[in-house]
Design a protein around this nucleic acid. Structure first.
Length: 730
DNA sequence: GTTCTAGAAC
DNA sequence: GTTCTAGAAC
């Protein structure tokens, strides 16, 4: 959370933010014209980076564009990236130009293909020499690759334009943007053909400090989804929460969400909430808007860890924030009815319908009904489509005041009471969100101590699965007993190398997996599984992989590293295939392996202090020949592709080397847990323990999660890092 | 249509 | 262990 550094440096400097404006559009969509129009009028210093002209006659390169853009930004100028930028990959490097003092915007010129083609075909003397008949084919091909930008790519603001009116509105918006101004964050102008927009909530914006300038004419386009406003100097004044653009759809259909995040929209607890009581409950919009502004401001001021600049409003469907708008919001609020039942209409019906029956069941467990002004936090079961599709982990039901005589508890226009109840409703909602944030912080810091029961109460589903992973000491004993009995059943513990390797195993599967080799029953390894064995036997033949060799072990880079640094310390002697084979006589060897792994981990973490390592064995390895994994905890690797990969390093399947040594010295054998269930467990962040629906989403989360490691990992030196305090607890 | 997972072959 | 791919999920 970079909140502190941001707020400390407040003042003139901070407002002088440069902008990287990435234009997205096919040839002929009007990107260059857009730049020209803005540069002609704007008082802000703009530089246009155009790939067509940058090469001085020759065709330019992306690298040239990047270099020129970087140097213009260095001079304090804002830049237009005038190239097609139609897919995410094309845009990515330019998005990276952004930073604390540089906002990255996109303007999407998503005009009809026909129009782009006809313009490209007609024009002559085009800078990129794309004209005439050839243009049609090129534009068509490019449009097939089109991938509309999302906020999650790193944009702070995206403006979608689908017709000339939209383009003109966007031009006006940027024209009027002086050197010190900033624009509100969020997505603007994205069309949803079913959405009808009510402009009355414009009143909400009147709350914003002057000067307020309307970016586009509210009446000019019927289906315009967002109107843009901004206020000057909003970051240093006290009403930063008024940095908001708000729209409500007609007839109380799916409403607008407001989003409060603590740092980035991607990976920290983020709340999205609709405006409460403004739809079916017919509360006066102006009064409602005042209260939203007031309560949000109060909340972001009180919560030191919430970055008020990350408050934004978003026009869209609150049940499709991720899939429809690229916004990751793990907590959404529902403008519920007092019975906490589906139906009614508006947001409530939409959320219950999108979340499926799981939400109704989970809600019932929490509360049967709710009085106006109160809220209830409901953890969303992972079976809900809202969880798997949108990444929503909690729904907070809020009941606001009702002014609709057709509905229960009508206040008959008693706005004194109504406003009081609405304030309570927002307070309760934000407190609910704060409790989720706190409990997630607790979870990440959690050690074997008990959690506050109040927090536990609202997060049972987290706790249960969490305890699965990090049992407290009592449970640990139990679990180990379980491992033990299962292990005996499976007869994995092979006594020693010489003697009776033949077991009385009755497990059919084990028999199938076994065969007689040299008279001993041992696991059959496929040819692909023997690669490490071959390296161990002939390290000299694999010099390109091997980084160190001793009499006992070989150290090599994992061929498919699952993190930035991923080494294997491989036993050289024949016959010790896996951890199940290890017993007391191997203790010395295991300690040698550990020492070797530790040496490399320390070397790497001293070179790069951000690297933290874990040393351990897989309970049931896929590759023959005992090997110790030395793996950095970033898990930043393209080779980490599936659940099995993740869980093999982040569940009880992974046996820490220190524990293995301790267990073998005490009991003569290591505790193994090779159940399939461990490898197919739900995906949880190894730091904050948050759950994620799939591997891409998990990876996106862990790339930014800075929560401290769980105490169970910090204890007993299971984690190795350069400076324990700094690296683990940052 | 695209993204993601999971099973089979190697 | 990976790669390939069908089909499930979105």
């Amino acid at each position: 959370m970079d909140v502190d550094s941001e707020t400390v440096s407040k003042g003139e400097e901070e407002q002088r933010k440069a902008i990287v404006l990435i234009l997205v559009g096919a040839p002929g969509s009007g990107k260059s014209t857009f730049c020209d129009h803005v540069m002609r009028v704007s008082t802000r210093p703009w530089v246009r980076i155009c790939q067509d002209t940058i090469g001085n006659g020759k065709s330019g390169t992306k690298t040239q564009c990047l270099m020129n853009a970087a140097s213009a930004l260095k001079d304090g100028k804002s830049v237009f990236i005038d190239r097609c930028n139609l897919d995410r990959e094309q845009r990515a490097d330019f998005v990276k130009l952004g930073g604390p003092q540089i906002d990255v915007h996109a303007v999407v010129l998503d005009l009809p293909a026909k129009l782009c083609i006809s313009r490209s075909v007609k024009r002559t003397g085009h800078e990129g020499n794309l004209q005439g008949g050839k243009a049609a084919a090129v534009v068509n091909r490019m449009l097939q690759k089109k991938e509309l930008p999302k906020l999650s790519e790193g944009f702070s603001r995206i403006t979608f334009c689908q017709n000339e009116t939209d383009v003109q509105a966007a031009v006006r918006t940027y024209n009027a943007l002086g050197p010190l101004d900033t624009l509100p964050s969020g997505c603007f102008g994205q069309k949803n053909p079913e959405a009808k927009i009510q402009l009355g909530i414009m009143k909400f914006l009147k709350k914003v400090d002057a000067p307020v300038i309307a970016g586009s004419d509210a009446t000019s386009s019927q289906d315009s989804v967002a109107k843009e406003l901004w206020n000057k100097g909003l970051k240093s004044d006290s009403s930063s929460s008024a940095n908001a653009v708000k729209e409500v759809k007609d007839g109380g259909e799916l409403a607008v969400g407001s989003v409060v995040a603590t740092a980035t929209l991607d990976n920290v607890p983020t709340l999205a909430f609709p405006s409460i009581s403004t739809a079916d409950f017919q509360f006066n919009l102006e009064k409602a808007s005042d209260i939203i502004v007031e309560k949000v401001e109060e909340f972001v001021t009180a919560q030191k860890n919430i970055d008020s600049s990350k408050f934004l409003t978003f026009v869209g469907d609150i049940t499709h924030l991720y899939s429809g708008g690229g916004l990751r919001c793990n907590v959404i609020a529902n403008a519920a009815n007092w019975r906490l039942k589906p139906g009614g209409g508006g947001v409530n019906a939409a959320i219950f319908s999108a979340a499926g029956p799981a939400l109704e069941t989970a809600t019932k467990e929490r509360a049967g009904s709710l009085v106006p002004g109160k809220s209830v936090v409901v953890p969303l079961p992972s079976t809900s489509p809202l969880f798997s599709r949108e990444g929503v982990t909690h729904v907070i039901h809020v009941v606001g005041p009702n002014m609709n005589p057709q509905r229960p508890n009508c206040l008959n226009n008693d706005y004194i009471k109504g406003c009081k109840v609405l304030r309570e409703a927002y307070s309760s909602l934000f407190e609910g969100f704060a409790s989720i944030v706190r409990s997630q912080e607790m979870l990440s810091k959690e050690n074997n101590e008990k959690l506050g029961s109040g927090l536990l109460e609202s997060h049972d589903h987290f706790e249960l699965s969490h305890l699965n992973q990090f049992p407290n000491s009592d449970q640990k004993v139990k679990r180990e007993d379980v491992y033990e009995s299962e292990r005996s059943k499976k007869c994995k513990g092979l006594q020693d190398e010489i003697g009776s390797r033949i077991t009385d195993c009755t497990d059919a599967k084990d028999k199938l997996n076994s065969e007689k080799i040299n008279g001993n029953m041992t696991k059959a390894w496929g040819s692909w599984a023997q690669a490490l064995y071959h390296v161990a036997m002939h390290p000299e033949r694999h010099k390109e992989d091997v980084i160190e060799m001793s009499d006992d072990v070989v150290v090599l880079n994992d061929l498919y590293p699952k993190a930035q640094k991923h080494l294997l310390v491989l036993v050289r002697s024949e016959g010790l295939d896996c951890l199940a084979d290890a017993c007391k006589e191997h203790l010395l060897l295991l300690r040698t392996m550990h020492a070797m792994g530790l040496k490399w981990a320390e070397k790497f973490s001293s070179e790069d202090e951000s690297l933290v390592f874990r040393l351990g064995y897989h309970s049931a390895p896929s590759m023959q020949q005992l090997h110790l994994h030395v793996i950095s905890q970033d898990f930043n690797s393209k080779h980490l592709k599936n659940k099995k990969h993740w869980n093999s390093f982040n569940s009880a399947f992974f046996r820490d080397s220190v524990d293995v040594i301790e267990e073998i010295s005490k009991h003569g054998k290591a505790t193994l847990k090779d159940e399939d269930s461990l490898l197919s467990m739900e995906l949880r962040c190894h730091r904050c323990r948050s759950a994620h629906p799939n591997i891409p989403r998990l990876k996106s989360h862990i790339s930014n999660c800075r929560a401290p490691f769980p105490a169970s990992l910090i204890q007993n030196e299971r984690l190795v890092c350069a400076s324990k305090k700094d690296s683990i607890n940052q």
